[in-house]
Design a binder for these strands. Structure first.
Length: 245
DNA sequence: AACCATCGCAACCGCACCAGT
DNA sequence: GACTGGTGCGGTTGCGATGGT
């Protein structure tokens, strides 16, 4: 395949986006959508290549982007999902609503890798057990449901152990954590599960996931982490409307 | 205050994949 | 089946911000 000439050779702009460019891109997409990224710059009058426009929109301008620092829950989810999925950032991002693959990738390389390294080092000091610090989940009921209904991940095992602690929601507790993160603790998930074609019916047939939806909808509990857990364990795109808490 | 090192984030690059012809 | 164009993805880079000396 013949590679398309790069932006610079075409006289197109590169580098940081100006507020004016952002404005043009947003208003164009709001009006016309983004059917064809390659044609978009021409039609909108932007001196950018389509690829650059797409990236800017996806990583920064999309209205559903959640800005700001990652919560502890999100960080823990990234660690767990990375353990399951590897460097498939887009797949991880699909399970963290409002976060982009680029953002997750950056967070991984700047924060989480170091964090994990730190855990590894501290865990090597003890024999077979390590002590890690995690934040207590905001809502024990939710975590209980997760623990009842989902195959256990390392995070959930931690959560079940802290669920008896009843005061401050940000209290840090020391949790004994076994070193072995073997498949015993992760559900066997074949590729079809992660594929975008999985329907709602398929989800219900994959057992653990539906009961969580029901429990969330029924419980109407108030907790900052609710949307997060709700979205994380239900496939993006097949989600029912979020319940009001 | 000036310089340097490090960090964090936005953006780019190159490749792979897919659909249409 | 081969070719082409569009899109998506993961790795990498550039650069401003921040902190330390």
């Amino acid at each position: 395949m013949v590679r398309a000439p790069c932006c610079e050779k075409m006289g197109l702009k590169k580098g940081p986006w100006s507020p004016e460019e952002d404005q043009i891109l947003v208003s164009y997409i709001q009006k016309h959508g983004h059917g064809n990224w390659r044609a978009l710059p021409k039609q909108s009058g932007l001196l950018r290549c389509g690829k650059s426009c797409r990236l800017r929109w996806i990583n920064y301008l999309r209205p559903d982007i959640k800005r700001g620092n990652f919560t502890k829950e999100e960080e823990e989810a990234i660690i767990n999902l990375h353990e399951m999925l590897g460097n498939r950032w887009s797949a991880i991002a699909a399970r963290l609503p409002g976060r982009t693959d680029n953002e997750i990738k950056n967070v991984w390389h700047t924060h989480l890798k170091k964090k994990l390294k730190h855990y590894d080092e501290s865990s090597q000091d003890s024999k077979g057990e390590s002590t890690i610090q995690i934040s207590k989940c905001d809502n024990n009921d939710v975590m209980g449901n997760i623990n009842n209904n989902l195959a256990t991940t390392s995070l959930q095992r931690c959560s079940s152990e802290v669920s008896s602690v009843t005061d401050s929601s940000v209290e840090k507790v020391a949790v004994k954590e076994e070193l072995d993160y073997s498949s015993e603790y992760f559900p066997t998930i074949d590729e079809s599960f992660w594929s975008e074609e999985l329907s709602k019916e398929d989800v219900s047939e994959t057992n653990e996931f539906l009961p969580l939806v029901e429990s969330v909808e029924d419980s109407k509990v108030n907790g900052g982490g609710m949307d997060f857990w709700y979205n994380l364990f239900i496939r993006a795109g097949d989600m029912p409307d979020l319940p009001e808490f």
